[in-house]
Design a protein around this nucleic acid. Structure first.
Lengths: 252, 252
DNA sequence: CTAAGCTCTGACCCAACGTCAGGGTCAAGA
DNA sequence: TCTTGACCCTGACGTTGGGTCAGAGCTTAG
């Protein structure tokens, strides 16, 4: 009778030696013989059983279940198969629910990403990946071109530095709102002027008139205003009014 | 500031206390405070983080991944979500392949079940569940009716007893084949006569002529002969020949 | 004062192996 | 004959996400 060593058995069935050790340990597949030196010897019958095991394993049965299935001669098997199908169907249903949620989430994230990118395009972030919308809406403007030129050479730290400064200014503005300052107050105008200068230094020449236009955009586009108002309700509109006041008080 | 005990936090979010212990242990959710006696106190912020954790858990992220996702502010998140969707899609595909295999297998098993049931209908097993084919092919015969009548009152032990006797006779017959006896030998005929009597006592009056017919059926229908030949190659044909010999030697 | 109902930490358990570690066996080549 | 390399063995720990005690402390109501 021809027998196989453990590595032969493993290779023949495409599993690891460790797996066969495991199946032996849990008595799922005990090789029929051992050679004198204690090596496992697998017979053809053993390999057949192994094939059955792997078959049911591929169907998602647990090793414990497989043991039962192979003991149970044919009768109860149909029930077990049906139960397993049931389990798999439920599992699939669960995963499909997850998938749906993920898709919904991705759409949301992508929307806010787009919004951010539109903003970033005007402020200079790399719009390469979202060319469609950004290019269509802003691609023709001089500001866009200048911004795209300059920012090409910025690195991570540059971005982080800018982000920090911008966040600080937004935070200042939010504080003003909380303390009851008007958008036309000198304090608000001072902050918005700093905002303008920040854009000016980092991205493109931004006049007060242009900044006022930008402020309007913040309000018009819900996706912008949402992200601002997230920080502080009414912030988008407040900034818009401040840009206008800045233009009125200090000229172009 | 209102805080929550561990059991309150658990109940509020529908998870176990042990789970919160675990999340604390792996630093996924460390409660902001402990009270003087060492009890965990969860703040609202903690519960918010917990909600996020459970949200991503529901999407199939591992706890380790969740930790990263919650650290990573928004940017890398889209990538992670996309990767997760990818994993889930693959998982679904695998499960659907399993499902297909299971369905195919179930169809096969159901076919062999039907065969067995046809046999059982003539030998008396409850054919209720497979009425279609069994009824169509055998429903009109007297033997079927008689069998159906009698077996209605058999219980599990009756069936087991019958099964044991039948198995023993089949085994006897197999042994005769192995030892080179002819189907027409007195020994084979003796066994087949016992088989006939078994049917006679358990199910319906079965003459030798009828038994010969039955024997023919064993051979004709591949589904029958396969299950007999499984026990011993050539067994189905051997029994058929023996039933014929029995009829010839001993009359109707 | 005691029992009930919380809480704590520590520790073992599950499934299906992967991955060493430490140590034998065997055949071929120097 | 000795060594090298390719196999083989057992034993044991790690992984994931908690479940399930066990032993012990705190607080509160009866």
């Amino acid at each position: 009778m021809t027998t196989y060593t453990i590595s032969q058995a493993a290779q023949a069935s495409g599993i690891s030696v460790r797996t066969l050790h495991h199946y032996d340990a849990i008595q799922l597949l005990v090789p029929s013989r051992r050679s004198d030196n204690g090596y496992r010897r697998y017979t053809e019958a053993d390999l057949n059983r192994l094939a059955d095991i792997l078959f049911y394993r591929a169907l998602g049965f647990s090793l414990k279940q497989i043991d039962r299935v192979l003991k149970d001669q044919t009768d109860h098997r149909v029930t077990l198969l049906r139960e397993q199908k049931q389990r798999i169907d439920e599992h699939i249903a669960r995963l499909q629910a997850m998938r749906e949620q993920l898709v919904i989430n991705l759409e949301q994230e992508e929307n806010t990403m787009k919004t951010k990118d539109m903003f970033n395009a005007l402020n200079g972030f790399d719009p390469d990946q979202y060319e469609e919308e950004v290019q269509q809406r802003w691609g023709g403007t001089d500001a866009y071109k200048e911004s795209a030129q300059r920012t090409k050479h910025y690195d991570k730290e540059d971005w982080a530095r800018y982000q920090r400064d911008a966040d600080a200014l937004n935070q200042n503005m939010a504080t003003l709102i909380q303390n009851g300052y008007a958008a036309t107050s000198d304090e608000a105008v001072a902050v918005v002027e700093q905002m303008r200068q920040l854009i000016d230094t980092w991205f493109y020449p931004c006049s007060r008139a242009m900044h006022a236009q930008l402020g309007e955009m913040y309000v018009m586009d819900e996706r912008f205003s949402a992200s601002y108002d997230n920080l502080q309700p009414g912030l988008a509109r407040f900034i818009m009014q401040a840009t206008a006041a800045n233009l009125a008080k200090n000229g172009e």
